[in-house]
Structures are given as C-alpha cells and as structure tokens.
Amino acid sequence: MKRQTIPLLLVALIFTLGCPKKRPPAVLTESGQRAGAHAPATATPEPEPEQPVTEGPDIAAVPRGNPSGEDFTVNDATGENGPLEDIRFDYDKAELSDVARATLERHGLWLQNHRTAKVTIEGHCDERGTVDYNLALGDKRARAVRDYLASLGVAADRLHTVSLGKERPLDPANNEQAFAKNRRAHFVVSR
C-alpha cells in the first residue's frame, strides 16, 4: 500500500510543480499535429484534466505538448550522456529498488516538464548469464521501468522498450564494479 500512495502523491506534486506558470497563446506548436494542425484556436483540448484548459478570454486552449519550444539535450551519438541517468538493478533481478524508484520519480517529473521528449528504455544485463536468458531479463527490466513511469502519469506512447541483454555492456571489464554498471536501465531521449 505504501508503494501505491507515494507515486500518487508524486503525481500530484508533479502536476502542481510541472505546469508552466505562464502559457503563450499559440495553439499550434511543434507537436501541433497531435492537437490537429488545422484545428481552430478555440479547439477543445485533448482531455487531460490536470492541464488548465482556459485561463481567460484571451488565452486559448493549450494543446498537449510543449508550448514554449523546449530546450533539452538528447543522448550523444554513442547513445550515452542523455538527460536521464541510468538506474541499476541487482544481479538476476528486474525489481526496482527504492533508489531506482526515487530516480524514476525524478525522471517522471522531467518528462512531465519536457512533453515533446520521447524515451527509449533499454534493459541491460551483466555478462554473467546466458545470452537468451539475459535478453529476457533485459526485457523485464525495461518493462518494469516503463510500467513505473506510466504509473507516474507518463503517456505510454512516449515510452518504448528495448532489451539489449548482455550484448552491449557499458563497461566491458570483468569485475564486480563493471557488472554493477552493466545491470542497468538506460534512457535514450529523442524529440
């Protein structure tokens, strides 16, 4: 039960803190396609009760998506160094630790604030396991992360999972520190 209530409180917090103070009047944005590119300025917004719909006669409905042209960095060409840090897993486990949950809650907040960002969640394993089993384990890790982010209110269509198994270790070294780094969910952010 404790695990149920914390995310809900956080969702509330996210929506309180996460909404931009001032919304520009523009209807069409980079993500205007989703709102309907030819929609009139008074179009009804997509149902999203947490979003303010109108704030006055001179302010039109705010479409879903980023209203202000978001500024964020994405992962580099190697797929590393993105805005969302990795979370780690225990050996042969796909369960989220408390530390992992806390990190994912920050990621959920970031994703609420950067609504044009899409994320590929990669599930990785250390090399101490068989090829096929590790692909299955990486799949479970990525899905556990996706499900938790979705439970925080991130739209499922912004989250994509991929299992890398033990095929692309972050650190190829053969020791406990490298193994710990390689048991991870990694986030590749795109616009």
């Binding site: 096929d132 692909l135 299955a136 799949d139 479970k140 899905r143």
Partner: peptide, 9 residues
C-alpha cells in the same frame, strides 16, 4: 522465435 508482441516474451 521469441517475441514480446503480446506483452512478455
């Protein structure tokens, strides 16, 4: 082959 199309593998 193995696929997760239906949810899990």
């Amino acid at each position: 082959y193995a696929s997760n199309k239906s949810g899990n593998l």
